[in-house]
Simulated scan of single mutants.
Amino acid sequence: MGEARIAYVVDDEEVVRRSLVLLLRSAGYTVRAFPSGEDFLSASAEGLPFGCVLLDLRMPDLDGLSVQRRIVAQGLDMPVIVVTAHGDVPMAVEAMKLGASDFIEKPYDGEALLQAAGHALARGAEARARSREAAEAAERVAALTVRELEVLQGLVTGKQNKEIARDLGLSPRTVEIHRANVMEKLAVRSLPEAVRIALSAGLATRSMG
């Protein structure tokens, strides 16, 4: 059974909230609705499971753009789809510049909205997985000594042990020892695995001085 799909509806109009909740639930989503941006932000500050946020742009007190800015400021890692009236497209584009995944115009097409929500969740889940992988890779790479990092950098750029030894002023045997330590600390058994972890940790973009 797949992971539960969750959606958060943020809209001040009760009729719209009910309509979106019914639509999303009919498609198998677990849905929680909020009548204002403040209510959603308060709940998110306390902790909400990963889900897709359907955010109305035109709301009193705190409009959708302000909510989107606060979402970014809070570091809330959820895809946001802004729901906008026909004349608010420039405002929706501004929301996307702030990080929103997509926008849907009212009156919305149910199928298009569900498709947008599904795509946003999929992209968001992939981004979260990449972020977790990068964090785990960085943690492993951080355990390496400076010399081991230099050897790994050489391996990432495709150099052989002899070339790395010449570049670092070491004997090939010493490089082999460092390479074995790198493999052990990264918990990998092959060079491609080591390179993948190094790239995921951003090692290839660092200057090794």
Score class of each variant (00 low, 15 high):
A122P: 00
V141T: 00
S131F: 06
R70Q: 15
E111Y: 08
V72R: 15
E46K: 13
D63T: 10
A138D: 01
A134K: 14
R123T: 07
A137H: 10
D77Y: 10
A112T: 14
M78Q: 15
L76S: 07
V67T: 12
E126A: 13
G75Q: 06
L113H: 07
V141W: 00
A143N: 04
V151G: 11
R130V: 09
V82I: 03
G47M: 03
A33W: 13
S36P: 06
S36N: 05
E126G: 01
R70V: 15
P90G: 08
F50T: 13
L121Y: 05
G124N: 02
M91E: 13
E150F: 11
M91P: 00
F103G: 01
V141Y: 01
G110D: 08
L76Y: 06
R130S: 11
D61A: 12
R128C: 05
Y108D: 05
G75V: 09
A33C: 14
E133D: 15
E111V: 14
R132V: 14
D102A: 04
E38L: 03
L65I: 15
A112N: 15
M78S: 15
E126Y: 09
E111T: 14
F40A: 04
L41S: 06
R58T: 07
R69N: 13
A129F: 03
R130M: 14
E126Q: 05
I104F: 00
I81W: 06
D63S: 12
Q68L: 12
